[in-house]
Design a protein around this nucleic acid. Structure first.
Lengths: 193, 193
DNA sequence: GCTTAATGTTTATGCCGTAAACATAGCAGC
DNA sequence: GCTGCTATGTTTACGGCATAAACATTAAGC
């Protein structure tokens, strides 16, 4: 059979960079679709490839989700870093990174859920070498002026507050009210030190 | 056709109380199975009924999950109330209910997730007439000695901490360490008032 | 240029949720 | 006591899913 270009753009048999395309499509889909509604077939369709082509680049669905989660935690870290930089010198720079955490979650609900919910056997814990984790550690250590044990406690407490607030808002248990975020992550009432 | 008892127990065409049996089977399944692996067909199989019999009692899967969630929030409230009663007069009765929240979550991971994660259009927010919500409100109000605005803030902060801690532990981001729960929910360092 | 490995496709299996049509049986009124 | 209605199950069917296996195409190295 002669490979005549009958259509405007002849579809190449090989995609070129399917893996990247799939991750991009996944991230885009998560902007409007909850993670549990994400399907490999839909992604493949979106990218213009057969339903099982995915398996040439990911052993299974979990692996693809893991790649998306890795992108997510990276983006979260960068968003927090920007907020921290903007609040540099501010009396509550620590709080600023916490508020950024919650705001990023609200802006990227599905991806946020994926990052922290799908990590059963996928990615390492946030206490890896990712930006968000390093920010948390740095800020906490600074807040307690070097007290190691105190920093450890503060870190977990702070993480719990912002994570819990984000989750409750995402799950509709609390209104997604920006002012409420400020009222909860309030340095005057939150921690006693 | 004669209805002869050929088998030890003749299976009645009608189950008797299928709805209750399904909920019970669902709760039992959630003890060992994550909520996303729960299937109507498996539940029907468990109860000994055809795959579609479920639809005589629930319009769809979400409705069944909603019924399970309702059971869950009820159980959580009772567990917290027991803990609160045990800590009555204790200087940190408020903290006791918070620690109970986290411990119940760790003991019932799938059900806890269902209660707070599946409520998109299922159940009302926890701020309904359930026990857990009332406990939170009472304890917070007492902690601030009647200050309404302060109680509101404290309530959300406290809920966020315990919910975040529970989630992070369930998702493997923090070790499920009982001592860590005590260190996080620590009245001396958690809130400044 | 031929071989080979990488990358896609086709086909198939066995789950799933759920809709529609049909079967059974308890019960209400005569 | 018979009749018919309604609640409750069953059967059958559909389309979608993840994934496995066999096959096709193409790019890259010798």
């Amino acid at each position: 059979m002669v490979t005549v270009s009958t259509s405007p753009q002849t579809r190449a048999y090989h995609h070129g960079d399917l893996r990247t395309a799939l991750v991009a499509a996944g991230l885009k889909a998560l902007e409007t679709t909850p993670v549990e509604d994400l399907s490999l077939r839909a992604l493949a369709r979106e990218v213009g490839v057969s339903p099982t082509a995915v398996y040439r680049h990911f052993p299974d669905k979990q692996a693809l989700l893991g790649a998306l989660a890795a992108e997510g935690i990276e983006q979260l870290g960068q968003y927090q870093q920007a907020a921290a930089a903007a609040a540099e010198g501010n009396s509550d720079a620590f709080g600023a990174t916490g508020r950024a955490y919650v705001r990023w979650a609200l802006a990227n609900p599905a991806l946020f859920r994926l990052v922290f919910g799908q990590c059963r056997d996928v990615g390492p814990s946030i206490f890896g070498d990712n930006l968000a984790a390093r920010l948390l550690q740095d800020k906490a250590l600074r807040a307690v002026r070097g007290d190691e044990a105190g920093a450890q406690q503060l870190m977990v407490q702070a993480w719990a507050v912002v994570h819990g607030l984000a989750m409750l808002m995402l799950d509709g248990q609390l209104p997604q009210d920006d002012a409420l975020i400020d009222r909860v992550i309030d340095p005057r009432t939150l921690f006693a030190r």
